[in-house]
Amino acid sequence: MSTLDAILNTVAALLCIVGAFFFFVGTVGVLRLPDFYSRTHAATKCDTVGAGSVLLGLALLQGFDPATLKLLLLAVLVLISSPTAGHALARAVFRGGLEPWTRPGHRTGGGVS
């Protein structure tokens, strides 16, 4: 029983560390990337994975409990709301006419139609 607990604790701690790492990447991305659109990339993806991972780790640790359901609900909430919020902001800015930053010198892909 205690070995099972040890394994569970280790897995949960690993998940939390992975989550913390992605949060850190999100922060670095938000600070370093050149324009709003790229920052939204870092913000939505890394925060979703980070929060989901930490919440999953804690849910594992809690075991079977009403709190676990709440944790899973929170994870689903972040999973749905984070990209939606990012998209809403990006759409508002795009319709407001902010041009995406492109690497100076060459323009790849199709332009804005």
């Binding site: 370093r32 659109y37 870092a42 995406p100 492109t102 892909g109 804005v112």
Partner: peptide, 18 residues
Amino acid sequence: VAEKVLDPAMPVDPCVIV
């Protein structure tokens, strides 16, 4: 995304597709 962001040279090259 993490690879791109943590790379010191930051090899991002944003583009828009339709």
